[in-house]
Design a protein around this nucleic acid. Structure first.
Lengths: 178, 178
DNA sequence: CCATAGATGTAGCGGCCACTACAATCAACG
DNA sequence: CGTTGATTGTAGTGGCCGCTACATCTATGG
């Protein structure tokens, strides 16, 4: 038979809840109610709140990575081209909730809260490392190109979240990303 | 005699507390303890939590505007020049806490929480409007230049908060902002 | 069949939260 | 003096939080 609720089911529900209500609304009690079970079950699989949050954030990072995998299929010559190939994939309505969660985590990281700070910096550094390989040339050059690309994309995504898709697209066009 | 605690004193203390501990840790009780008074006093001047948060955020917005006033003293020809003149003023260690709070507010806004969402979008739109006047040409061109400049700056500031000043400066150099 | 380990239910703990009721103080003013 | 309004103190409220104690059930292996 196996357990009625597996850890995977609960984690999936937690992701769903986080997308719907935000990380700050993700509590044992609310998640339990959403899954039609008791908080006791959730605590059994995720002994502390940090465990739950961490796994959710790692999963979100994975989801973002998938989106980016699709975006960065080919090599790029510079940060603008990188952003230009990424933008059509990232600026879609169905991925907006993912980045909403991403920015919420960034906000909590900026406030110095753990485990957000550790996880988000790890995520960012992972991207820099990964994107560095998309460029040719001396390693330091490649890294700064990757960092510039991330700044470009994150700036546009932030504008998209706060000022709307039209404003972001206008800015993207001006930055030669569209 | 006047009151022992004026509203201004409390608001100043709230700003201080927000810079030190983050918005999410700003509660009636904690602020009262920090000020050596009772939460009752704070509630008297700020009847709801939203009132307190709103006034704090407006004050932070004002503080940011001051920084930007200094940054954007002269007119700019395009978004890169705009960002380039702003960057030295914004990328300073003493303003980092301001932007940490800024990103925390953005995160809560991205999660759809009020009053953050309303206040932050208002803040952003105010900047777009204000920066639009720094450019010459047709209004639509000026607006998209302003939006691009904001995306550029915010992307760099985000990188600075999460990956450190060095990474941000490297990206800034690559984006012709440094 | 029994022992064991995994999984689940019931109940509750102490703590912090935003917010409130109510009374006391105090100054200004008619 | 008496009233009024602004301010402050005391003491809560109900609710949600993360987390825990403890009993129970169930599947499995010896």
């Amino acid at each position: 038979m196996g357990p009625k609720h597996t850890k995977e089911e609960i984690l999936a529900g937690a992701l769903e809840a986080a997308y719907a209500e935000g990380l700050s609304q993700l509590t044992f009690g609310r998640l339990a109610k959403r899954l039609g079970t008791s908080d006791r079950i959730i605590v059994y699989y995720f002994p502390t709140k940090d465990d739950l949050i961490s796994e959710v954030l790692v999963a979100v990072g994975g989801r973002l990575m998938e989106e980016l995998e699709d975006a960065f299929g080919e090599r790029a010559t510079d940060h603008v081209e990188l952003a230009a190939t990424a933008w059509p994939v990232l600026a879609r309505k169905d991925v907006d909730p993912v980045f909403a969660l991403y920015f919420e985590a960034i906000g909590l990281a900026a406030a110095g809260r753990e485990p957000y700070r550790a996880l988000v910096t790890q995520l960012i550094n992972g991207w820099v490392e990964w994107l560095t390989d998309f460029f040719d040339g001396p390693p330091e050059h490649c890294r700064s190109e990757a960092e510039a690309g991330i700044a470009l994309i994150d700036g546009l995504l932030l504008l998209r979240q706060l000022a709307g898709p039209e404003a972001a697209d206008r800015a993207a066009a001006r930055l030669n990303v569209l």
